[in-house]
């Protein structure tokens, strides 16, 4: 028996919007720790890892570990029927091939339940090693989204370089080149508007902008985004989900032939 009651149902709606274009089908895993997902895109270039900790739910009952295979497009269709202020409860019985999403309006005057068919998905979990990153950049998520969108109108790939000068996003295409440098800026009043660059070593990596743009669909989840770079590893683009957990996107770099 599984019953997870999320008062801020809009978080789940936003999570789905941020992953449904990257991943078609995925297993949601439910355990005492929380509600989680790990999935790769079909070409195995990007990986998404989501965690919503059990403490973040108003009610969290998960009698045994359960993995529920869902088509994310269908799940998104159902969650779009929930109001932004609705409380969302996810329910499933042991051995059932369906999951139920219950939506309650804040004033309790409207209660809806949507039952969705589950599916069997063969998915392999990958071990994500703890890593020391050469550089970690924290910046406003809207700024990062703007940069990725702007650069993708010029080129297909972005070179992200961190030096003591700041973080540079560069692209080149048929019509020309573009470079955007963001410097550390902690003087702003609001911490979520600051840009903080921690650099152990200079690093420069190339990534496909198509994936970066897809990750920025998570922008409504957090004011800040953290970009962790190391020359031997996929970049990690992390959006913290307030008091609940995170959504992390891993993207494999483009490597010189």
């Amino acid at each position: 028996m599984l019953e997870l009651r999320l008062v801020q149902g809009s978080l789940l709606k936003k999570v789905l919007e941020s992953v449904k274009d990257l991943v078609t089908d995925a297993n949601f895993d439910c355990s005492a720790t929380g509600f989680s997902l790990q999935a790769m895109d079909s070409s195995h270039v990007a990986l998404v890892a989501l965690l919503l900790r059990s403490e973040g739910f108003e009610h969290y009952r998960c009698d045994r570990n359960l993995s529920m295979g869902m088509n994310l497009n269908n799940m998104s269709k159902m969650l779009k029927c929930a109001g932004n202020d609705d409380i969302i409860t996810i329910k499933a019985d042991d051995g059932s091939d369906t999951v139920t999403f219950m939506f309650e309006s804040p004033t309790q005057d409207k209660i809806a339940d949507f039952e969705m068919k589950l599916m069997d998905i063969d998915s392999e979990h990958l071990g994500i090693p703890e890593a020391e990153y050469h550089a970690i950049v924290r910046m406003p998520s809207a700024e990062f989204a703007r940069i990725c969108k702007d650069l993708s109108s010029i080129g297909d790939t972005v070179v992200i370089s961190v030096t003591k000068e700041g973080v540079k996003f560069s692209t080149r295409g048929d019509i020309g080149t573009a470079n955007i440098v963001c410097r550390q800026n902690t003087s702003v009043d609001k911490p979520e508007e600051s840009t903080i660059i921690e650099m152990n070593e200079p690093v420069s990596l190339t990534f496909a902008l198509r994936y970066m743009n897809s990750f920025t669909k998570a922008t409504p989840l957090a004011n800040s985004v953290t970009i962790s770079l190391s020359s031997e590893l996929p970049v990690v683009v992390e959006y913290k989900i307030a008091e609940m957990g995170y959504i992390r996107f891993y993207l494999a770099p483009k490597i010189e032939d």
């Binding site: 070409s43 270039v45 979990h125 990958l126 071990g127 996929p234 891993y250 483009k254 032939d257």
Partner: peptide
């Protein structure tokens, strides 16, 4: 030119 690598090159299956 640059070649796209994959996640499975870096992270192994559990």
């Amino acid at each position: 030119g640059c070649k796209q690598s994959t996640i499975t090159k870096f992270f192994s299956k559990l």
